[in-house]
């Protein structure tokens, strides 16, 4: 375990130094970003829609008691942006993109394609690993945007049906409650979640040994490890963010 973490840190260092020192080709980066976005677009937008809907219904029940339904849109959106959106997107991606990346790299490893790449004068970190890592991060930020957009839409629809609040009223108080800090918090989280996701998936994929069975194992390990790490990182970022915020605000 400790050994694995050490290896993972060395691996990350290699990715980062590849990204910052050698750079990667623009085509590779776009290709990977597009691939991740396409793979998860539907799931993330669907999830976004329903999360927005659920949040709105839940908030509507409680806000009604205080006659504060005007703030429904603001609260639901803020909650989605700060917490549920990033977490849900990270979980979706870990099941889909994380598993896919680990399987892809694992297969390349056990079928000696990685060896062949090195023997043919190419650098797997530059051409395969770093573009996937960066692609996952950038695509996740996009996906958060889409997901949040859909969640506002879903919430708006529910508010209309269950609380007789029209779109205009729903949206009006979003800017009052959704502050810059909510937006930063959401993107900050998604960045670190996808950072860990990309790191773990490429690391476990690239360290695969032992044939088809080994690939299966890497996929399962990636799914489990990313979920656990994401929840831990969520706790860390939330705590960190709130203490930074309370230090700044007075």
């Amino acid at each position: 375990m400790i050994n694995q973490i050490g290896l993972a840190v060395i691996f990350l260092n290699k990715i980062l130094s590849t990204l910052f020192k050698k750079g990667i080709s623009r085509e590779d980066f776009f290709e990977q970003t597009l691939k991740v976005t396409q793979q998860s677009f539907l799931t993330v937008t669907m999830a976004g829609f329903f999360v927005g809907a659920i949040m709105t219904i839940q908030f509507a029940l409680q806000l009604k008691e205080y006659a504060a339904l005007a703030y429904l849109g603001g609260l639901a959106t803020s909650g989605t942006l700060r917490e549920l959106g990033p977490l849900l997107i990270a979980f979706m991606l870990s099941g889909k993109v994380g598993a896919f990346t680990a399987a892809e790299l694992g297969t390349m490893k056990v079928t000696e394609q990685m060896d062949a790449i090195r023997c043919l004068g190419a650098d797997p970190f530059k051409e395969i690993i770093a573009p996937r890592f960066l692609g996952i991060i950038v695509a996740s930020l996009f996906l958060l945007l889409f997901g949040i957009g859909m969640s506002v839409f879903g919430g708006l629809l529910m508010a209309n049906i269950f609380a007789q609040i029209n779109a205009d009223q729903y949206v009006r108080h979003i800017p009052t409650i959704v502050k810059l800090s909510s937006i930063i918090s959401g993107f900050f989280k998604v960045f670190w979640f996808s950072f860990c996701l990309g790191w773990i998936a490429t690391f476990l994929g690239y360290s695969t040994t032992g044939g088809a069975k080994g690939v299966g194992l890497s996929v399962v390990n990636t799914a489990v490890a990313t979920m656990v790490v994401i929840v831990i990182v969520d706790w860390i970022t939330t705590t960190l963010f709130n203490s930074v915020l309370s230090m700044l605000a007075f």
Partner: peptide
């Protein structure tokens, strides 16, 4: 690796590239 070429036990071809591009892979880089 330019002087010593290795043919692997498995074909180890790149699935997303055509046969032509597979064979050209090393030439393009080296």
């Amino acid at each position: 690796r330019r002087q010593i070429g290795m043919v692997f036990q498995q074909p180890a071809l790149f699935d997303s590239l055509t046969v032509f591009e597979n064979v050209a892979f090393g030439l393009r880089r080296l």
